[in-house]
């Protein structure tokens, strides 16, 4: 990587280490994601291969831009546009209060990026604040496509071992392998609540069981009626019938009623009832500029 001066390590992706670096010619700051390739493994890891291919295709303001790929015998380096921080670090700078205008802008950008991915046959499958980058202009970008994949129409079974626990939807927690764009919409709903609460996670479960309990305690335990095929899911087990003890205005006190309505349309246990990104973008929460 003679073209770049490595500066400091800025993090670890799903695979590989990320460095801040400067392009020697242009002076431009970039992010380098470096994947070591060992002699005895299987060549390019599929996570890296998919991330590269997917980001070659996705060119959008709200998706991190892949500038270049350098592939040598013992390492693969992805050259990304540099962003100052991720959403998690941004939360840390807020001192516990998120301005409603900013919250809406972040959510709008998240959904725009997501809608673009979905219309271009890509599922992200690992949305969480650490994977949403924010630059100095306040532009949000979806990043870390290490678990992403292209899907066909109709979709077929994929891995159930996707999405970081706190942002994983109940169907996937129950082992569902047949899922679609709804998998990302659940994560978006969790992130929406976290944004509104300036970084307090909505469902910070300790394990799969605790995760499901936390979800059902807030949303009510789904039934065969609200979610017809639920008992057929591979890892389904019955949970006690919980009734929500907190109202949405208690959970997200800084969010207006339209925002709460959108959040409830995202956080639907039955995946077929979850709103998609395009419809979410058309929601009144984004059209009404006065009522914040």
């Amino acid at each position: 990587m003679l073209k770049y001066d490595k500066m400091e390590k800025i993090g670890e992706g799903t695979y590989g280490t990320v460095f801040k670096a400067r392009n020697k010619d242009s002076g431009e700051i970039v992010a380098l994601k470096r994947v070591r390739l060992d002699d005895d493994d299987e060549g390019v890891p599929s996570s890296a291969l998919r991330e590269v291919c997917i980001l070659r295709e996705l060119k959008h303001r709200n998706v991190v831009r892949l500038y270049d790929v350098v592939h040598s015998e013992n390492k693969l380096t992805l050259v990304f546009e540099y962003c100052d921080q991720d959403l998690k670090k941004f939360f840390d700078s807020l001192n516990g209060y998120m301005d409603p205008q900013t919250a809406r802008s972040l959510m709008l950008q998240l959904l725009r990026g997501l809608s673009f991915c979905h219309a271009h046959h890509v599922l992200h499958r690992d949305l969480k604040p650490q994977n949403l980058l924010i630059n100095t202009n306040g532009t949000l970008k979806l990043a870390d496509f290490g678990l992403a994949r292209a899907f066909g129409v109709p979709v077929r079974c994929f891995s159930a071992e996707v999405v970081t626990l706190w942002y994983r939807p109940p169907d996937v927690l129950f082992g569902a392998k047949l899922y679609n764009v709804s998998i990302d919409m659940w994560s978006a709903g969790c992130i929406f609540a976290e944004i509104s609460n300036a970084g307090r996670p909505l469902f910070p479960g300790a394990d799969v069981d605790d995760q499901l309990k936390r979800i059902f305690k807030q949303l009510g335990t789904p039934t065969e009626e609200s979610w017809p095929s639920i008992t057929q899911l591979p890892d389904y087990k019955p949970y006690p019938t919980y009734h929500p003890s907190l109202t949405w205005s208690q959970i997200v006190p800084n969010l207006n009623s339209k925002g709460r309505d959108l959040m409830q349309k995202l956080l639907v246990c039955n995946p077929s009832g979850r709103i998609d990104a395009e419809a979410a973008l058309a929601h009144a929460y984004f059209s009404d500029t006065t009522d914040l």
Binding site: A119, H120, P154, L178, N180, V181, E278
Partner: peptide
């Protein structure tokens, strides 16, 4: 539209994109 596996909201876009 009732069948989630059909990704019906995006299917038409995806084939145009292909």
């Amino acid at each position: 539209a009732h069948n989630p596996d059909s990704v019906s909201d995006y299917a038409s876009d995806i084939f145009k994109y292909y």
